[in-house]
């Protein structure tokens, strides 16, 4: 495996149709994906994730802009499968061909040694099913076979479109550990998903798109948006507490279980109560969940 490669998207745009009826599936998308970590490529269904990845892999021609691996487009790579391994959403297998034969075809096309077929089948835990026709495979087995195809050339970059879709809990745990291990080896890993919760435990970085445009780029922690945090507070003398909060200029709403103070910090709310001589029965910071932030970013469609 060669050293890690940076994936670079530069003003990438894909327009379907022409004239007034044209739709920008992806518009002016620019970001980079660094080696040695797992980057989650997130967005609701129809946000343009698959189109973006297919442009990166030379399957769809961009209307404008470029997507490269360290400056080289996929079509110009001297040894594509040994540089980039990919598994795309629409798993494409001939149902009448066995898994081992499927891998053999593409190993031959890329000029890879035949032994790689057995190696990758073992890596994804399909060594016992290699001689079975793919038509009889479960969705989970197809996902694993897709991953095996991606690993054929022992590539330094992995591009995986919705690899967790359709996996059972055991399969999800397996793929998380597996991706971790691949990233630890210094590979560049880009994983798309429409659910943050699916990849939350695996990714280091997130790139979020909606309607084909970039809306957030940063570490996973950056999604935890501190500016919208709330404090939940309560006192035996609820009226006194509310008077103190009003005097301090807070906006709040009173619920049965306590008072939710908007845009507040637990320490400051505690001090306000202390200064007013109000005894508190509870005080805690409520952080907006990652998923909530994600949904807030991508808008209504994210709720699907």
């Amino acid at each position: 495996m060669p050293a890690g490669v940076t994936i670079e998207f530069t003003h990438l745009t894909k327009r379907f149709g022409s004239g007034s009826g044209s739709v920008d599936a992806v518009s002016d998308l620019s970001f980079t994906v660094e080696p040695g970590q797992i980057t989650g490529f997130l967005g609701p269904n129809g946000a343009g994730k698959t189109t973006t990845l297919r442009m990166l892999l030379g399957l769809v021609a961009p209307t404008s802009g470029t997507a490269t691996f360290g400056g080289v487009s996929y079509r110009s790579l001297a040894h594509p499968l040994s540089t980039v391994g990919s598994a795309l959403e629409a798993a494409s297998f001939h149902p009448g061909r066995t898994a081992a034969d499927h891998l053999r075809v593409y190993a031959q096309a890329a000029g890879l040694p035949r032994q790689r077929v057995g190696v990758v089948l073992e890596q994804v835990g399909l060594e016992q099913y290699g001689s079975r026709r793919v038509g009889g495979y479960s969705l989970g087995m197809r996902q694993r076979l897709g991953l095996a195809s991606a690993l054929l050339g022992d590539p330094s970059v992995l591009v995986l479109d919705e690899p967790i879709n359709g996996l059972d809990p055991e399969g999800i745990r397996w793929i998380r550990l597996f991706l971790r291990q691949l990233a630890a080896e210094g590979r560049t890993i880009l994983v798309s998903s429409h659910l943050l919760s699916e990849v939350q435990q695996s990714v280091d970085e997130v790139v979020i798109i909606a309607h084909g445009t970039l809306i957030h780029r940063g570490s996973l922690a950056s999604l935890d948006m501190t500016e919208t945090r709330q404090v939940i507070v309560d006192a035996p003398d609820r009226v006194a507490l509310q008077l103190a909060l009003t005097a301090a200029g807070y906006h709040f709403s009173s619920l049965r279980g306590g008072v939710i103070v908007e845009n507040a910090d637990a320490e400051a709310v505690g001090r306000t109560a202390f200064d007013a001589g109000v005894t508190l029965s509870s005080l805690s910071q409520k952080r907006t969940g990652l998923e909530d932030s994600f949904l807030a970013l991508v808008g209504e469609e994210g709720a699907l």
């Binding site: 892999l57 030379g58 399957l59 996929y74 079509r75 790579l77 594509p80 499968l81 990919s86 795309l88 629409a90 494409s92 297998f93 001939h94 499927h102 593409y106 096309a109 890329a110 195809s149």
Partner: peptide, 10 residues
């Protein structure tokens, strides 16, 4: 299968 075909040889 054009997808894996074109990925192996663009």
């Amino acid at each position: 299968t054009l997808t894996p075909t074109f990925l192996a040889m663009p």
